[in-house]
Nucleic acid binder design. Structure first.
Lengths: 160, 160
DNA sequence: TGATTAGTTCGGTATGAATCGAACTAAGTG
DNA sequence: CACTTAGTTCGATTCATACCGAACTAATCA
């Protein structure tokens, strides 16, 4: 399975990015990157193993993590025992939903901090009040924007 | 330095959050959380050590990391050799700038992916085109929003 | 000058995550 | 039934990170 140099590099780049941003193991990130950059047809277990030059066991467990997270899915072909893996349809939606979840958590934390400082460090809170509220507000708007985008994706999904 | 139960819990909660979101070590996260929840006066090295029940060496190195990242700063009092640590003024600005940087990186990656798939997986790209562009667009808007907020913070900074 | 204080440096240890290989299972094939 | 294929499970190994204690430095104090 000869890979273009360019694709290898891009897998690496996207892989590192996913590692940092999605809390995936190095191998899981690279498998996911590989599938993002591969056709909708999907790739078999064996070709993933050989492309990644990793052990079957590692590929197996990492694929299961990605399936669990709904980042990828598989389909089969009649008369063919193999599973073909590809990115989930609308996997971007998952990413956005996760982002939204994190933002919500962040917002709650910021509110708790502001509230605590209002009670316990009034002079500090007074100084930072405007800033703190501005930040709360900012997070809220980001959150709303994500929800808007999710709605648009939902619309697309229905059209498809 | 008796701490309220409530403060301890909040330090823990904020600490975990920072660990996940800011890529800080557990101890660095908790020190940062402690300072976020403490007065603008700041805390001395020794009182951080005793509050955290951690070794001087660990506190020292983690404080240096936080200083390096400009998450915290210190000031001294005349006739007092100690340094008093507190969160940087406008530390929220740093957080937003880092977020902006990450989003920019993310956007570039998404663009590269879209471009690669347009060239190499045209049938896939055709399917996902609208979605991909919608996502690019979304990221761009998030980015703009952050810049707006940063400008507002800049204004506040000048007023102060 | 000797003793304290404030903090740093350095070597070592422990813990956990990621990967591996070897043995295994389960299903289909000849 | 014996063999191959597709993939899983499990124990061992490797590696990085986080933290610690002990020894150190540099400034101040009596």
């Amino acid at each position: 399975m000869e890979q273009s140099q360019q694709k290898q590099q891009l897998i690496e780049e996207v892989g590192v990015h996913l590692e940092e941003r999605a809390n995936l193991s190095p191998l899981a990130s690279r498998i996911y990157a590989l599938l993002i950059l591969s056709s909708h047809e999907g790739m078999s277990f064996e070709s993933i193993v050989s492309t990644m030059q990793a052990s079957k066991s590692s590929v197996s467990s990492n694929i299961n993590v990605l399936l669990q997270l709904s980042y990828i899915e598989y389909h089969t072909k009649p008369g063919d025992r193999k599973r073909y893996f590809r990115t989930s349809d609308f996997y971007i939606k998952n990413a956005l939903e996760q982002q939204s979840h994190l933002l919500e958590k962040g917002l709650k934390i910021v509110q708790k901090i502001n509230h605590f400082n209002e009670d316990h460090n009034p002079e500090k809170f007074k100084n930072e009040k405007t800033l703190g509220l501005l930040y709360e507000n900012h997070l809220n708007e980001q959150l709303q924007k994500i929800h808007q985008t999710l709605i648009e994706i939902e619309k697309l999904k229905k059209q498809a």
